[in-house]
Amino acid sequence: MSHVKAKEVLPEELLKEIQKYVQGENLYIPKPKEFYQKWGACSGARKSIAERNAAIRRSFKKGVSIDEFVEEYFLSSETIKKIVYSK
């Protein structure tokens, strides 16, 4: 998260109004909900995990055991079961 000086981006009137409530403190202004992104959307982690899970499901259908996945992916057997038995 980067820091931006309020003085550089806010109109003077708005800055003075905010200063009535907060002075010399860091203030976090959240994004509007319509701009939220799901976890991993920017980094590609979500896509990477989805691809890994699809590969696990394909291999499971071909007969690879849950214990083999535990060793290969360093995931718990319960996590592997959730992946292979989910739709």
Rank of each mutant, 00 (worst) to 15 (best):
R52S: 08
H3Y: 06
F60M: 11
I56A: 03
E17F: 12
E51A: 07
L15M: 07
N53L: 05
S43V: 01
E8L: 09
K82V: 05
A54G: 03
C42L: 15
L14R: 01
Q37W: 14
P30E: 03
I18A: 03
K61S: 10
N26K: 14
T79Y: 04
K81E: 11
K61W: 06
E12K: 09
Y85A: 05
P30R: 06
K87Q: 10
K82N: 10
L14E: 09
E25G: 00
K31H: 10
S59D: 15
A45L: 12
L27K: 00
G24S: 01
L15W: 04
Y21P: 00
N53C: 06
K16M: 11
E72L: 06
E8R: 12
C42T: 15
R52H: 09
M1D: 12
P30G: 08
E8T: 11
P30Q: 09
M1R: 10
Q37A: 15
V9K: 12
E12L: 10
Y85G: 05
E71R: 13
E13D: 10
E51R: 09
K47S: 04
S59H: 09
I66L: 05
S76Y: 02
I49D: 13
E34F: 13
V22P: 00
G40S: 06
A45C: 09
A6M: 03
E17W: 11
Q37N: 14
K31E: 10
E51T: 07
K82S: 07
Y36R: 15
A41I: 13
E13A: 07
P11E: 07
E34G: 07
F69A: 02
E17S: 10
L75W: 00
F69M: 02
Y73H: 07
Q19A: 02
M1T: 14
I80A: 00
K82L: 05
R58G: 08
P30D: 04
K5N: 05
C42P: 09
Y21H: 00
K16Q: 10
K62A: 13
Y36V: 12
S43Y: 06
R57H: 04
L27G: 00
S86E: 06
E12T: 09
W39T: 11
A55W: 14
K38F: 08
Y36D: 13
K47P: 02
E25K: 02
V9C: 12
Y85P: 06
E51M: 11
Y36C: 11
E68H: 08
K16V: 11
E13W: 05
F35Q: 15
V70W: 01
A45P: 03
K61V: 08
E72D: 01
N26H: 14
F60C: 08
E78L: 11
E78W: 14
Q19P: 00
V22L: 00
E78A: 15
A54R: 09
A50C: 03
K38L: 11
Y21K: 04
E13T: 05
Q37M: 14
K38Q: 12
L14S: 05
I18M: 01
M1N: 14
F69E: 00
V84Y: 05
K5M: 01
M1L: 14
F74M: 15
Q37R: 15
I66V: 10
Y36P: 02
G63K: 01
I83F: 01
A54E: 08
G63A: 01
I80S: 02
F35P: 07
Q23L: 08
G24L: 01
Q19D: 04
Y28M: 08
K47Q: 01
